[in-house]
Amino acid sequence: MIEFIDVHKSFNSHEVLKGLSFKINRGESFAILGRSGCGKSVTLKLMTGLLKPDRGQIIIDGIDITKLENSGLAKIRKKFGFLFQSGALLNSLNIENNIALPLREHKELPEAAIMERVKEVLNILGLKHLEHVMPAELSGGMKKRVSLARAIIRRPEIILYDEPTTGLDPIMANVINHLIVDLRERLKITSVVVTHDMKSTFMVADRIILLYRGQIIRSGTPDEFKDSPDPFIKQFVLGEPKGPFQDEDELKLQEKLTGKKEENN
């Protein structure tokens, strides 16, 4: 259903993804793990065509989206719901208008049906009576839930979650995890979750990949990750400061300095 084939992506001289290849099956819950700056969010943006890869193919339901223009991408994007890390709610619109926005814009339903659908998703996500509240008045957890409501309003086939539990207290993080599992079971959708949160990963994922230096270094099921003696997995799962992972920021700085040295020479 979603396939990355040898995908490369650079920003300026820094190569973030170096030949990424994986396949996600329909209905699967797929987690992408890795340290900050390793290209997890970039992978999600490539999946929806928000970024174009330098090389490689990204196949969504048999269509290579790297070759599509805007109109083609718009059709493919209808399959997706996206929960952004910050929520990305439009601050000028109240909650009801934020959630109803994609339906109203595409005139997919009459207004009465849109309102009914908005009420339905607000109920699913436990956000009753918040229709007229502005995003600025909501807490971080509420914003994420409203953003999730907007992501599912068009009944997408695939939902992408960019660090869904980051910045939330443990209780709210657990609420979001339960929502992800609940939505997957209720709506039978494919989920792709980018996260650092191991508890969340073990709760929601069927399959996991671990990224490091723009490549997949390990993959497996949650159970395989939990009991793995592999030093990379162990360090990441337990969050140990010492191990085979090097600091990505430090690496970037080193690359920058090396690049400058070469330029000067």
């Binding site: 943006k45 929806t48 928000l50 805007n70 718009a74 059709k75 994007r77 209808k78 997706f80 996206f82 952004f84 890390q85 910050s86 990305a88 709610l89 439009l90 601050n91 926005l101 994609p102 814009e105 595409h106 907007r150 068009r154």
Partner: peptide
Amino acid sequence: TMKVSEEIDALEVMSIDPISY
């Protein structure tokens, strides 16, 4: 502000053209 807080990306993912909107 919309650009840096990913609101423009959100519009694009919803197939809403930011230029038109």
